[in-house]
Design a protein around this nucleic acid. Sequence first.
DNA 1: CCACAATGGATAGTGTCGCTGTCCGATAGT
DNA 2: ACTATCGGACAGCGACACTATCCATTGTGG
Lengths: 217, 217
Amino acid sequence: MRVGELSRRSGVSVASIKYYLREGLLPPGERTSPNQAAYDEAHVHRLRMVRALIDVGGLSVAATRDVLAAVDDPDVPLYVALGRASSTTTAQDDPADDQDEARAAAERTLAAAVDERGWAVSDENPAWRTAVGVLATYARLGDDDLSAQLGLYMQVMEEVARREVAVVVDRGDRARTVEGVVVGTVLGDTLLAAVRRLAQQHCSLELLGETPIRPRG
Amino acid sequence: MRVGELSRRSGVSVASIKYYLREGLLPPGERTSPNQAAYDEAHVHRLRMVRALIDVGGLSVAATRDVLAAVDDPDVPLYVALGRASSTTTAQDDPADDQDEARAAAERTLAAAVDERGWAVSDENPAWRTAVGVLATYARLGDDDLSAQLGLYMQVMEEVARREVAVVVDRGDRARTVEGVVVGTVLGDTLLAAVRRLAQQHCSLELLGETPIRPRG
DNA sequence: CCACAATGGATAGTGTCGCTGTCCGATAGT
DNA sequence: ACTATCGGACAGCGACACTATCCATTGTGG
């Protein structure tokens, strides 16, 4: 198929498809003549992935490119790719003294929690820096309920991750597996956040009887 | 204090402070003369909140404004404010037929899962639409492992939410409580995602022995 | 076989976001 | 008195994610 049909099949405008091709999110079609190319089902699927990661997962075009590059390239470790997929900037502005101190304290907290659970994780993992940043920020904001919840978060996320990894192990080929991990991780973040909101509403109603909720439907 | 000191204390540039004032993220200082204002500790704290929500939570300026408005105004239901805080756009482009169908199926899946857990949640909750969107997207992408995990996600998030709500119940005044909920929810999303990545790394190592990890430190 | 739509490719333009820079006349502090 | 700072308004900027236009092919229905 050519670009027009690809556009119709995927619901993405021709202009955007051209843009994604330029940005390397979508591999070029197979050449049928010096300036003509043919696309196939793989391109339709890829476009759906792209839209899912961008619209639902909230990734930037650049992050989506990196993540998809890791899906294509068996040599890129997954956690590196998924680190890029963190919507959070993880950037620090001015490394003021108290900032550094807060970060150091947060890092000790995390390290202790990780050791206690017996997790084998590297501090190369971008998620490590992100977690430290959140903890440090929370501490600077005054209360530290979040740090108190850290143990629980780790416990439940280990449960979640174990199931996720288990499901993914017996897939088929490696490409589909990796793709499943990536999509599951990125979209899973969004789903988990939404489910957390629903759970919070339910629990606050349950514990406080705060808001009268009319049932669905 | 005046703007210069507020800037120094908070690490936010004067230009940005003026911008936040314009955008309503920061309440105006108390007037000491027709064109002079004084700021206090509350402004320093507020600025820290703003930076935390934007930098760590990944919220937009507009979302941050809405969330903080809810913190200030007791009449705005919390879940409405926190719905705005979802980084995900939750937008749909072309409601094609199969799109609608996928959404409807996803909505039935969610409703069934919610009923099974006995959750009292309203479909007014923005998180409901987000969750439906994620499920629908995942279904359209081919496999539906995510839907298979939905029950687990709900189970662990109920556990998490119960603890979070419990911690927040016995706070002191309502303002501090609400603030704690908001910050905990927004930063918690980021923390949970990061912890999930770490857990995934740990579990994939544990189950597959996939990557040799050198220990921290 | 030929007019005419569609294509690939390049480049420029658009709208939004989150600031940043500059200017102004009015204080504040010394 | 004088200079730094202030608040306030507004223009500008760079990044981002497209979108529009142009053009020289190419494909295709009549």
